[in-house]
Design a protein around this nucleic acid. Structure first.
Lengths: 254, 254
DNA sequence: AATGAACGTTGCATATCTTGCAACGCATGC
DNA sequence: GCATGCGTTGCAAGATATGCAACGTTCATT
């Protein structure tokens, strides 16, 4: 829509791959070096790009700060956080909070397991959308037409033998999740890791976020984790109530 | 340098403060609504900006992804990470890795304490530059003139009674840190939290990063934490060696 | 139900701002 | 000492962003 800005912003993903010098940037943008220079300078002034000692350009620090502030201003996150902490205190497993945004589901909060075995995930990272419990919860709330259209467009990587294999299976699972009001991921992403999750709803009943509890097999079996489902659901409901405008209630904080 | 891009990028920090609608953005940019609209659209196409359900604009998901990739491509980080993990395994406290960039010191990696009491910090977040052990380490390596110039420009917030009070005190401390090759922050940022840190050097001896170990008083006293200093320094040296091109050595991995 | 305000959106003519070019300075290597 | 490669600058040409005015919608008000 705006050529100049478009070009400038195209530099960012390019630099995300690794540092590059002026010539490389210009070439990949398909513009003259002087043009690339001026764009980089502007990005630099705003701190989005940084010039390292060997003169090459990198993504800059301001990017972190922005991402940071963005995540901290999410009101669901703010409300949910103490609840997630409380849940973690109670059973010690990793707790995640995720939202759907622009074709992706991404973690916006995480409380680490107290057990030494940790799973890899990071706030801001898009989740494996076809298998993650939180993704199923968020997508299950879409109107059916959108759900189907979306499911068709996805890839279904076979992370493990229990990964969702295709759109049909995914849609079936979404229907079930919608029905029952909770979701699982039993070894669908990593063979040895199970999750159970529950939706967080706004005042209008729409799912605005989803939370999950994850634990590796070596710590608790899938059955044991499922026993904790009521606790997860109660937590999600407490967050939902508070998010919908109810006063924080100490009795529900658990 | 490029007006259009400049305006577009100015939108980002603005939205970092919280969601805003088109009119607000246009007003704060000092441009016509239609101009703001087109800029926002371009930002949107690149995923840096996101339109939430109430039509207002927010910072978008791509921002996280970019920040993520940026941090993961840092080669110091990649090399250091296993060492940090090993150190954490060994003594259980929070371990940080930080670099200096564009007038700021920021955490680029963190391994959480295994103790229940956690400190607040986040990857990408700028540190309290006048008190943090990692900041002292990174700045102590500056040439003296720059060090002084930089120290003069800083603010010296009194986080606690033991915070660095002014430039003179800071410069004295930097000189000492430079001399001894390690640094501490004993309650300078938060009354009850102590840190000890050591520098990571490149092949040319310059400090490229700094690491620290932090623990609250309630877990270990400052004296006990200082006893762990040799361990921290050995870890930093192992990282330095590997970063300078030495082959990873299992005997140093500790 | 009707009116009005507020907001986002579009097409268009103007002129501002970006662009590519060519030339320069500087370092590095042959 | 010369050549090559890189980043940088000033300038003229014209592509491109801009503000305006008008339209469509939604929402609150009377």
């Amino acid at each position: 829509m705006s050529q100049t800005v478009d070009r400038a912003l195209s530099i960012l993903p390019l630099l995300a791959e690794g540092p590059a010098d002026l010539g490389q940037v210009a070439e990949r943008l398909g513009v003259h070096k002087s043009t690339a220079l001026r764009l980089l300078r502007t990005l630099h002034e705003h701190g989005l790009v940084f010039r390292q000692s060997d003169q090459r350009y990198r993504l800059g620090a301001r990017l972190f700060a922005l991402a940071q502030e963005a995540v901290e201003n999410l009101d669901v996150r703010e409300i949910a956080h103490p609840h997630l902490l409380a849940l973690n205190e109670k059973c010690g497993h990793t707790v995640h909070l995720a939202v759907y945004e622009e074709q992706e589901v991404l973690y916006i909060d995480k409380v680490e397991s107290r057990y030494p075995v940790r799973m890899y995930s990071r706030i801001g990272k898009p989740v494996a959308i076809t298998v993650a419990a939180v993704a199923k919860l968020l997508l299950s709330d879409f109107p059916e037409a959108e759900r189907r259209a979306f499911a068709e467009k996805l890839d279904y990587p076979a992370y493990t033998s229990r990964s969702t294999p295709n759109a049909a299976a995914f849609l079936r699972e979404l229907a079930q999740v919608r029905e029952q009001g909770w979701a699982t991921d039993l070894g669908g992403h990593e063979e040895s890791i199970n999750c159970v999750g529950a939706p967080i709803r706004g005042a209008d009943g729409r799912v605005v976020a989803a939370m999950s509890m994850s634990a590796p097999n070596v710590v608790v079996t899938a059955e044991e984790l499922l026993k904790l489902l009521p606790l997860v659901r109660r937590t999600a409901e407490a967050i939902s109530r508070e998010y919908s405008g109810a006063v924080p209630d100490a009795r529900n904080a658990l």
